[in-house]
Design a protein around this nucleic acid. Structure first.
Length: 510
DNA sequence: CGTGCCGGGGT
DNA sequence: ACCCCGGCACG
């Protein structure tokens, strides 16, 4: 194999590229980054704390609003004497009463309750106590300058996007993602370190090392497999570990660690379809978390309950839009309407969703597409997997096992395919383009625009419409990243066998 | 033009 | 069987 390697040592490494510029989203969709940038903008102006942590996905309109707000000055016109306000003072926010508001100079005189003193400051530094909840932590200007430390980071990570099961979970995830992201670039890519044993722990990185696990095959390299078929899966132990890795400890192993990352976020892995999902809308208002079924409902809710007093201003016309987010819940949960829980994906933009709510679509009981053609090959394998890791929506990292196909000699193969966001079902090919809005989320590494729950739709197409399926003999080009892309040519030895043989990739089927 | 992979070749 | 690659289709 050494020969192989040396022979085709790469011209270009996709892997490298990926590793170097990962955080900023290298997705093809040019729209991603820009959006983020814009989102950041308002924050920069430090006027609009609302955005801080909530789902950027559906904030198109607000963004606009905010921007204008930023330029035009704070719209909250005049403070009334006696009004309760918060003001940024002495490094913290203090409660105070408005003494007077001088419109002319845009200054507000505030009587600080705590300090028992009066101060005069700019309007931007003062905000109404009522709004505290929403517009809390980031008081104006100078404060903004004080905290940027965490901001720039968090903004890039679409933390809110993946509303996992619990709210706290979200926070944790955010933190973890954050950490791992911030670490990953560091590990440039010590391309293939022959680090003897340590290598063995990584199920897929090693090639010759495969055997060292003691189990199964003897020959080095993948080819060694004899009978193929029932691979004794090494994962029983491996998987937990990996799981851990995916989440917690960013340092997997030698420079390769960055690789799984793209996965974690990208891998479309459409095949694992979730149970029927239902789209719900969750109120993001602090301490609210109300979940409603309809977009109208949620809007009304937000408007009525939270924005009640602000709606007067035209500028807030659409404000409710960004106080709710779309979430997908399992049918059962949806029924129960568990407040904070929102397994699955937050999904995108609220606008184009209505159709989705149709349960009929979502409920289509289809076997994962993959099963449709490769299923029969190793039924046993699937079942032997650790619980539902595979098929269920393991919110964590999740294992994708495959050892099949004529080419696939290796015993078994696991790929940590991401906590993957089911959003990332690559149905890009589908007629999805219909919606002009294509809400590009701020997912840092993305390549195909995920969407809603159309897995059902897609598979449906495949199943029911034989005409389109494969009219031509040639297999439709896969949307998924193939080994080549994922590992780069330099790491050809890590490709799946099929890929190496220039055959249809078996690792990342479409 | 890069990529995925079929078809066909070599060992 | 394994391995490789020409060459085409696709984006």
């Amino acid at each position: 194999m050494a020969s192989v390697l040396s022979r085709r040592l790469g011209k270009r490494s996709l892997l490298g590229a990926r590793v170097l510029g990962p955080s900023a989203s290298d997705g093809p969709s040019g729209a991603g980054p820009p959006l983020e940038l814009q989102v950041e903008l308002p924050e920069g102006t430090a006027l609009q704390p609302f955005l801080t942590s909530k789902d950027p996905a559906c904030q198109e309109p607000p963004k606009e609003v905010l921007k204008t707000l930023g330029t035009l000055g704070f719209p909250q016109v005049a403070f009334q004497p006696g009004q309760k306000v918060y003001v940024w003072y002495g490094g913290q926010e203090s409660l105070g009463l408005v003494e007077k508001h001088s419109l002319a100079e845009d200054k507000v005189t505030v009587w600080l309750l705590d300090q028992k003193l009066q101060i005069c400051c700019k309007v931007e530094e003062v905000w109404l106590a009522e709004l505290q909840g929403a517009m809390s932590p980031a008081p104006p200007v100078e404060h903004g300058a004080q905290v940027p430390a965490y901001r720039p980071v968090s903004r890039n990570i679409d933390v809110p996007k993946r509303k996992s099961d619990a709210v706290e979970m979200d926070e944790m995830m955010a933190a973890m993602v954050l950490t791992s992201l911030s670490c990953s670039p560091v590990v440039q890519s010590p391309p293939r370190v022959e680090a003897s044993f340590s290598a063995s722990r990584d199920p897929w990185k090693e090639s010759g090392d495969v055997s060292d696990s003691g189990s199964s095959t003897t020959s080095g390299h993948w080819s060694g497999s004899s009978g193929v078929s029932t691979p004794s899966p090494p994962h029983p132990q491996a998987s937990p570990k990996y799981l851990g890795d995916a989440f917690g400890s960013p340092q997997t192993d030698h420079g390769f660690e960055t690789d799984p990352d793209p996965f974690l976020l990208d891998e479309p892995a459409p095949r694992k379809r979730k149970n029927s999902m239902k789209v719900m809308y969750k109120c993001l208002w602090p301490n609210c978390g109300k979940v409603l079924r309809s977009i109208v409902g949620i809007k009304r809710h937000v408007k009525a309950l939270h924005l009640g007093d602000t709606v007067d201003s035209d500028q807030f016309k659409r404000e409710e839009d960004f106080y709710y987010t779309e979430v997908q819940m399992k049918e059962e949960l949806a029924v129960a309407v568990a407040g904070p829980s929102a397994p699955g994906t937050p999904a995108a933009d609220p606008a184009p969703t209505p159709c989705v709510t149709s349960p009929s679509l979502a409920a289509l009981p289809l076997p994962p597409p993959k099963a449709q053609y490769s299923g029969p090959e190793h039924p046993g394998l699937e079942s032997s997997l650790p619980s539902g890791a595979l098929s269920k929506s393991a919110p964590g990292s999740f294992w994708h096992i495959q050892a099949d196909h004529a080419y696939q000699a290796l015993p078994s193969f696991q790929i940590p395919v991401s906590p993957h966001i089911y959003t990332s079902i690559s149905w890009a090919a589908a007629p999805a383009t219909a919606s002009p809005m294509s809400p590009v989320r701020s997912r840092s590494l993305s390549f195909s625009e995920p969407q809603q729950p159309p897995p059902a739709v897609k598979s449906h197409l495949i199943v029911t419409s034989p005409p389109r399926a494969q009219s031509s003999a040639r297999k439709a080009r896969g949307e998924a990243k193939k080994c080549r892309k994922v590992y780069g040519i330099e790491h050809r030895d890590q490709w799946c066998t099929a890929c190496r043989w220039k055959k249809a990739c078996q690792r990342f089927l479409d």
